[in-house]
Each structure stands twice: as structure tokens, then as C-alpha cells.
Amino acid sequence: MEGEEALMRAAAADAWAGEIPAVFVLATNEVTTLEPPVPFHLCLARQSYLPFTTAEVVDHFKPFAPPMGGGEPWYEHDGQPLRWHVPLGVLFDLHAGLEAEAELPWRLTVHFQGFPATTLLSTANAAAEGWVLNALKESCFLRCGSALPAMSLSIAEQKKLTHALTTNDFREYCAVAERISAAMAKSLGASGLPHSVPVRVFTSPVEWRQQPAAPRLPSGGSTRLYDVLVSLLPSVFESSSSAAPRVIVQGVSVPLETPLLWLHGACSHPDGFLYVYVSCSPPSTAPQIA
């Protein structure tokens, strides 16, 4: 058991160390200078979110964009606006998909105009912080039946969490996460088992599901990733005819037998949710945007 615990911590540290090399260009119709700006290269932390990590990108391109544009910056990959409220690593897995290796560096287009307000939430920085805390409260509720562990974070601790996300600082994040787990452990009592494991399952960049997933099966065994997926997506996981779907967590294909609680401990995102991407179509038939 102890070995597993150590392995889980090591995996969590690895997940935090994960970065995506990306190159940003300004949308050609928004370049107002004779010479277009040089592309901006940046390593994006998998555990963070676009608004926390792209301040430099905005500073770099702003002088070249229409001066009166002044709108909120937004990002697009292959014609699809990126939904900033999804963690970056998940976004990358969803958009670059199975050909992730071939996609590097991840090519993103920066826009300052025409914010797609119907598909994206407003990205003011406070909104991004609020978003993470809000999701953290939801995941706390799923785990221990109360959002108090997240709600009782002090302003200083909330700032610490934001700072950890901005600088990709795992140790700083752990300090806050430990505060939350200590508060949670109090309400969970001796067994320490959460009521349910917060999981969100994506099947496309805009389609996702979640459901309460108990850490133990009624038979007493540990719930496996498979058990959650088969109950959420029976048509994908019960039929034998369709091609085996690929199940990706933190950019890695994960065996379906993996115990859910362990996977959550190792690979969950800072908002307390475990994000799973189920890719149903093989790479050759993946829809291409012409």
C-alpha cells in the first residue's frame, strides 16, 4: 500500500511537470503593422489554464493588433476557439488528439477582436480565479458532501493557489491542497474514503459528462476507470463491434483497469476533478477541418 502511495505522489509531481510547447501567432486579419510580429514560443503547463499563463503572449502581440480592438484576448487552434476554462493539458489532448506528437509545437492563433461570446466565457482574470475556486468547491462537495474545505480557504491561500497555477509551482500547490485535504479528512472520519470521486469525461472538445462515482464497488473491490466509463458511455464501452476507444488522462493512454481513486490522486487537476478524454474515432477517420 505504501509503495502505491509513493507512486501516486510521484505521478502527481510528474503531472505537474508536464508542459506543452506552443507557438502563438497573431491572426493575420488583426495585424496592423507592415511587418507581422514574430511568433511567440512558450511552454504551457498542463495543470494550468490559458488566462494564467498567457500574460506575456498578450504583451507581445498587443502593439501589433488594432489599437481600438481592446477586446479580451482569445485563442484558436485549427479554426476552433479554445475554451479557457478547461485545463490546458486537457485542451491540448482534446484538440491535438491522438496525433499529439505530430502536432508539436502546438500552433495557436491569438485574437483580440471578435470574441466569440456564445462559445467562450468572459476571460477577465478574476473570472479565471473564480472559475477554479468554483470548480474546487464542486469537487469538494462530491468528495466529502460539503464545499466547506474549499470555501474556508483564506484570501492568502486563494492567492497562493492562483500563484501556483501562474508559475506552475507544485510545492506551493501542495501546501494549499494539503489544507483542503486536512479539512476534508475531518469530515470524512476514520475511513478517509471520499463519498465519490470527481470525474469529468470528455468525448469531444465541447461534449462532456460527469456522474457520481463511488470509490468502492458494492462488492467491496475498488472502482476501476472502466466501471465509470461503461456506466457513462455504455454504447462505446459495451459494444464489441466498434473500434476500441482510446482513453487519455494527462496526455497518456490509461489502462481501463486502473483503480479510479488512485488515478484521481495521481492525475487530478488543481480544481479537484479528474479529466478523462475518450476518443471514439481512430486517427485516420478523425474529422478534419478543411
Binding site: N134, A135, L142, A147, R209, Q211
Partner: peptide, 21 residues
Amino acid sequence: YCKQSFAPPLDARLGDIALCF
């Protein structure tokens, strides 16, 4: 707000949130 504590994501499916909360 749900459970007097958090706002469900606007793109969440009602059935999922209902099942959870």
C-alpha cells in the same frame, strides 16, 4: 448556485448535475 456553494458550469448537462447533487 447549487448546494448553496458553487455555480454549475454553464455547459454542464442538467442530468449529470442532478445525479450528483
